[in-house]
Computed example of a mutant assay.
Amino acid sequence: MLEQIMNSPNFNYLGRGLAAANLRQEVISNNIANVNTPNFKKSDVVFEELLAKEIGMDDSGRLPLVRTHDRHLPVGMIGGAKASIQEDDTTTMRVDNNNVDIDIEMASLAKNQLYYNAMATELGGYVNKLKNVITSGQS
């Protein structure tokens, strides 16, 4: 029973989302720390696009639903899309070949903080619901 709870899609997706946000925080911090380093190329974290492909979203952002039985709806497969770091060596912002734009990085940092907080709140709510279900029959 516990294994089913821990392997549920909600728990899996939210956990990987938190891990991606954590990695993105490190990457953005590294970009900001190297804003004045000559020849430094910024990096980005790719996760959301990989997750969308994993769960079968089409280009419009919609999930296709397929019925396998009149009373069943499909359950998404839990795959292994993981956050990965991608270096951007295609652009140059300054004469010293550095491509870090501090304004974009600071905005990305704020956006990532909001994303992390939302994921943490959702995961906490999910765990709280599980706790309530487990303890509802006890006095």
Results as ranks from 00 to 15, higher is better:
Asn12Phe: 10
Ile55Cys: 11
Val75Arg: 01
Val45Phe: 01
Met1Gln: 14
Ser60Ile: 05
Leu50His: 07
Phe47Met: 03
Val35Pro: 13
Asp88Ser: 03
Ile104His: 08
Val95Ser: 13
Asn98Glu: 09
Thr68Val: 14
Val45Cys: 07
Met57Gly: 02
Ile32Glu: 15
Leu114Val: 12
Gln4Thr: 06
Ile78Pro: 07
Asn117Trp: 04
Pro64Leu: 08
Val35Met: 07
Asn98Thr: 05
Thr68Ser: 12
Leu23Trp: 13
Asp70Gln: 14
Ile55Gln: 09
Thr92Ala: 12
Asn36Gln: 04
Glu105Thr: 06
Asn112Glu: 13
Met93His: 13
His72Asp: 15
Glu87Cys: 00
Gln113Val: 00
Glu49His: 02
Leu109Tyr: 08
Asp88Arg: 01
Val45Asn: 10
Gly80Ile: 12
Asn31Lys: 04
Leu65Tyr: 00
Leu23Val: 12
Gln113Cys: 08
Leu73Ser: 03
Phe40Asn: 00
Asp96Met: 01
Lys42Gln: 09
Asn12Thr: 07
Ser139Gln: 03
Tyr116Leu: 05
Asp96Cys: 01
Arg24Tyr: 03
Asn10Leu: 01
Arg67His: 12
Glu122Ser: 08
Asn97Glu: 14
Asp96Tyr: 00
Gln25Ser: 12
Leu123Gln: 06
Lys41Gly: 04
Asn7Gln: 05
Val46His: 10
Gln86Ile: 05
Met77Lys: 15
Asn132Ser: 02
Gly61Thr: 03
Ile104Asn: 15
Thr91Asp: 09
Leu23Thr: 13
Asn128Gly: 15
Val100Ile: 06
Val27Lys: 04
Ala20His: 12
Glu122Val: 06
Asn22Cys: 09
Asp58Lys: 00
Ala110Asn: 14
Asn98Arg: 11
Met119Arg: 01
Gln113Gly: 01
Leu73Val: 06
Arg94Asp: 10
Tyr115Phe: 07
Gln4Phe: 05
Asn34Glu: 10
Ile28Phe: 03
Asn12Arg: 13
Asn31His: 08
Leu51Phe: 15
Leu23Lys: 10
Leu109Ile: 13
His72Thr: 14
Gln113Ser: 06
Asn112Trp: 02
Phe47Gly: 11
Met77Leu: 13
Thr68Gln: 08
Thr91Leu: 00
Thr91Glu: 12
Lys131Gln: 12
Thr92His: 07
Asp70Met: 09
Asp59Pro: 00
Leu2Pro: 14
Asn128His: 10
Val45Asp: 05
Leu18Met: 15
Asp44Thr: 13
Ser43Gln: 04
Asn7Asp: 13
Asn7Leu: 03
Asn132Gly: 02
Ala33Ser: 03
Glu48Arg: 02
Leu114Pro: 07
Asn31Glu: 09
Asn36Thr: 07
Thr37Ala: 09
Ser8Tyr: 04
Thr135Pro: 03
Arg16Val: 05
Asp103Met: 00
Asn36Met: 02
